[in-house]
């Protein structure tokens, strides 16, 4: 019997170790291709170069038409789209969370919560399609009325739709944080004569700040890694621009376009996708760890 127990326990431990093996495999496989890439292309060119046109390098022996691998436009595009997305998701998500946890009656909650949950459950490819079919033409005609020319694939379209997509995520995280602030704090403030909104702005939010910051960081990490919306709505051209009305490209889009339909792993072109993936992995990893650390270190304990 005791032996049997031991086997089961060992089996469970084995499964647990497998989850670490997966992380190890991710890092190993992606980084080994990345190092192969950096043996061909210098890291300084990749991280500081401003020209991104990897498509020209088809095979390793085509030295004459080696592409250029300056990833700055790609990272800048990622940054721009994520920034727009967070400009939408942060206020929407925060205000929605505050309203739901402080003001909303139980009946309002009963139908508002499911709606936001549906919004979170819609697959990203659907958002992408919606961005292309509805939001992009809408923004175009709105831009024409204002005398702006908006590209049919623009950072603005992708960012707006991605923002809506991240909103429920930011909302549910910050709602948890807000409701974790002890009621006695806000009761104290209300008893002093502060209005509900003053209580929220000056008592609840400062107390919940670390949690909210980490929720926003997790939202950013979501946005940076989001693929389908940007593939469909943001475009492929690597423009070095901060103009949200132009078409930009992101790291995820480039990984997709470089690797889909490609079988060979020998060219700089495909290897550069792994370098982008590696950078993406570390960006999100750092964001997640920072979010975790902020919560751990700065959370005020009230009990």
């Amino acid at each position: 019997m005791a032996k049997f127990e031991k086997y089961i326990r060992a089996g469970l431990l084995g499964c647990t170790i497998l989850s670490i093996v997966i992380t190890g495999l991710i890092i190993l496989s992606v980084s080994s291709e990345t190092f192969r890439f950096f043996s061909h292309v210098s890291a300084t060119e990749f991280f500081f170069g401003t020209e991104w046109s990897p498509q020209t390098a088809i095979r390793a022996d085509q030295a004459a038409s080696a592409g250029s691998f300056g990833a700055v436009p790609v990272f800048l595009g990622t940054f721009l789209v994520t920034l727009i997305a967070m400009a939408v998701a942060a206020p929407l998500g925060l205000y929605a969370a505050i309203y739901l946890s402080v003001y909303a009656g139980s009946r309002f909650r009963a139908w508002a919560k499911p709606i936001l949950e549906i919004l979170a459950g819609v697959p990203s490819v659907v958002y992408g399609y919606f961005a292309v079919i509805t939001i992009a033409p809408f923004l175009r005609s709105a831009g024409e009325m204002l005398g702006l020319s908006i590209a049919s694939e623009s950072a603005l379209t992708a960012g707006l739709v991605m923002g809506i997509m991240i909103t429920p995520f930011v909302m549910s995280l910050s709602e948890d944080v807000i409701s974790a602030v002890p009621k006695s704090l806000s009761f104290g403030s209300l008893a002093m004569g502060a209005t509900q909104s003053e209580t929220i702005k000056k008592v609840v939010l400062p107390a919940a700040l670390p949690g909210i910051v980490s929720a926003l960081l997790l939202g950013v990490s979501r946005g940076v890694g989001e693929t389908m919306v940007v593939v469909m709505a943001a475009g492929m051209a690597a423009n070095l621009t901060l103009n949200p009305l132009e078409s930009v490209t992101t790291a995820t889009v480039q990984i997709m376009t470089l690797l889909v339909g490609d079988h060979e792993f020998d060219s700089d072109k495909t290897l550069s996708a792994f370098a982008l993936g590696f950078s993406l992995f570390f960006m999100t990893l750092i964001l997640n760890i920072v979010a975790l650390v902020i919560v751990k270190r700065y959370r005020e304990r009230y009990d």
């Binding site: 989850s19 991710i26 940076v224 890694g225 993406l280």
Partner: peptide, 13 residues
Amino acid sequence: NLAAVPSIIFGLL
């Protein structure tokens, strides 16, 4: 952390 890794990275893997 694995829960927050972008899905496309799993595709690379």
